[in-house]
Design a binder for these strands. Structure first.
Lengths: 215, 215
DNA sequence: CCACAACCTGACCAATCGGTCAATAAGATT
DNA sequence: AATCTTATTGACCGATTGGTCAGGTTGTGG
């Protein structure tokens, strides 16, 4: 089975490459349009125009608008989830939470569109990824909450509710993507500079790490 | 002019009452639908059904979908803005920021739909309230930032970037409305209880006030 | 070179959208 | 009771939507 698939893939290298390239192109355009207009406001025509393809071509690769949307959301969810790998290996809250804040701030900076799509999906009741919330995310959360509790028991930080601390981390870091337009407006219409991003990260880390008594 | 208007209003009491009642009814339904479906996903028919009125009746009170949406957003913005009156009268960060967190958490709890509409509007580039961001909100923000800076100068709290502190306050409190569905899912599918809301408020206040060195 | 499969796309369609309008009902004014 | 204004609504309309499909092109294996 695996061998056959590999042979086919080698022989059809050109074909699968075309498919992969076009799917990526469409997914990137879709992420942008969904972020800017929301699921309801986005149209297949807009996505097609941004991708530089005829609309019918989109439906060749993605059967429905919802299928395309689902793929976009799943891609973001993966990035979102793996940003927390730094959490596990850390010896304590200073390193673990500090690195997590850095990682999530970087996601907000590098993938603002994806973050908005994710926020929008959850805000509208998670019609597409409800099962993920109930399985993967729930496990992830209780795992990290347990780790935080362990740090508390070991005297590495003050006793705070781990769940609410996690919500604070999500909220604060995600804010820089979701409300990026508001921040930019309040910043005189200009995006945050390299220095300002650094200051944002430092401020958030300082307040939270000090707030939980880790430093 | 004023006297004439008053006479007219008294004489037309019944009429203006009908108008006021229907506008309120429509605005409440619209807030809910816009929050659940976004501007693009919301339809006048859905709003009409939720309000229990024929669609044509909506257009009698609100010329266009955008007019209706604009009114919903403005209403939220007013609530949002006046929540910060507590800020000004406070002698220091413990009272000022503490009360502000309480007020904003209460808004997230009592007006989750409105908060989502506001978040959605900003997330999509504030097409309707961009002027408000550039005028009212900008003044409001620089005013509060100056007050925070004053507290810092008076030694009432540590030196942190006031803007980023404000963003943290907005993000954290608003999160309980915008991501309420996610929180509810992680809470076993049940809304936060009275006790959990209280714990959320306390955790947020503790971490932030301690994080800025105010307690 | 042929046959087959994957890829591409202009033209088209039913459904739904925001919005209009003429006709009617209800309330207020004289 | 006559008259005027406001409120109500079913029927309707042009525009746009997601999605389909037939027919053509391109790449691949034999």
């Amino acid at each position: 089975m695996t061998q056959t698939n590999q042979i086919v893939r080698l022989k059809n290298g050109r074909r699968t490459e075309i498919r992969h390239q076009n799917e990526t192109l469409i997914l990137q355009a879709a992420e942008k349009v969904f972020a800017e207009a929301g699921f309801g406001g986005a149209t297949m025509q807009l996505i097609a125009d941004l991708a530089g393809l005829p609309k019918a071509n989109l439906h060749y690769y993605f059967a429905t608008k919802e299928d395309l949307y689902r793929r976009v959301v799943h891609n973001i969810f993966e990035i979102w989830l793996h940003a927390a790998d730094v959490f596990e290996e850390a010896p304590g809250p200073v390193e673990g939470i500090g690195a997590y804040i850095d990682a999530k701030m970087e996601i907000s900076r590098r993938h603002p569109a994806g973050s908005k799509v994710w926020a929008s999906e959850v805000m509208h009741g998670a019609p597409v990824i409800q099962d993920y919330l109930e399985t993967t995310l729930r496990e992830w959360t209780s795992g990290r909450a347990a780790l935080i509790q362990q740090w508390i028991d070991e005297g590495k930080m003050r006793a705070v509710n781990p769940e609410h601390l996690l919500y604070m981390l999500w909220a604060t870091t995600q804010h820089y993507a979701d409300f990026g337009h508001q921040i930019e407006t309040l910043n005189g219409g200009a995006p945050l500079t390299e220095r300002q991003w650094k200051e944002a990260k430092e401020t958030v880390k300082q307040i939270i790490l000090r707030g939980i008594g880790a430093i």
